[in-house]
Design a protein around this nucleic acid. Structure first.
Lengths: 145, 145
DNA sequence: CTAATATCCTATTTCTTCAGTAGTGTATAC
DNA sequence: GTATACACTACTGAAGAAATAGGATATTAG
């Protein structure tokens, strides 16, 4: 199980935007360079974030992208779902009718718990938190590897 | 983000085996029928479980598959990893040298927390737990959808 | 011994999605 | 009016997932 490049690149990109919140717009070119991502590919990812209302843009020279709301109002969950799609480990979680034995299926419960576990991480952290972590040099966070 | 069919089918299959623990071997045919999975595909999945030492087999007529150890000694994590591969959201979690800015990358932390959250669910539940849940008719479990 | 059964092994196919590229159109600052 | 930077859409190559197919091997029952 691995994250898509979309999620990894996109998260890094929007974090860049969050760190510049309140300042001038950031250009694709700049982000792509800082994060080592293909220019054109990043363009598409940011387009997704824009369509989701997380980012806004200014066209023309001196244009670029800005966060659409304060970093504290953007949960990672929103970013993640935008990029990675809804998190549905198994179809039957959303469409029980799809599976005849759903009602007494113990594995279904597990997938549901997995979903909850992931969601609770992503809902508890905002872009503002990420910015803060980035700035505080980190190193002193609760690491448990 | 979605689970692979491997993980979904395989988990259901090994749960079948867990529920018959101590009894006669279960045949591919039987499991495939109960779980509505292609015979041949299931064969491959169970082969993975066998290679991982979670399941053993008896050949010939009246043969089939058995759990290799008591259900209480098999964590879902083992099953999951066998079927889905190791859970590494991002490369840099395992190979920090891969990414030049890993050391001050706040997103990396998030992926790590995600990894921990998933692992802690899968490590805390054994096949025996699943069997118990299945038998107790369920319905009275902590559902929070 | 033989025939039936069920696992074992591995190659091939089909399908989908991901990741990335390419090219053209449009708004805007200077 | 021209350079800049976003906007939009189509296409492509590679990889992996999900099966399918076919035959080899072991074991039991009669």
């Amino acid at each position: 199980m691995k994250l898509s490049s979309r999620a990894r690149y996109g998260m890094r990109a929007i974090l860049e935007l969050a760190m510049e919140y309140g300042k001038d717009p950031l250009q694709i070119k700049t982000i792509a360079e800082r994060e080592d991502i293909s220019n054109k590919y990043l363009e598409q990812l940011i387009a997704m974030l824009k369509a989701a209302g997380l980012v806004r843009s200014i066209r023309g020279p001196r244009g670029g992208y800005l966060l659409a709301k304060p970093p504290a109002e953007i949960k990672l969950k929103e970013v993640f779902v935008t990029l990675e799609g809804p998190m549905i480990p198994a179809e039957c979680l959303d469409h029980p009718e799809f599976c005849p034995r759903c009602m007494d299926c113990a594995t279904r419960e597990i997938w549901s718990e997995l979903q909850d576990a992931i969601n609770s991480v992503l809902e508890s952290v905002t872009l503002a938190d990420l910015v803060e972590r980035s700035l505080s040099g980190k190193k002193n966070t609760n690491y448990q590897i």
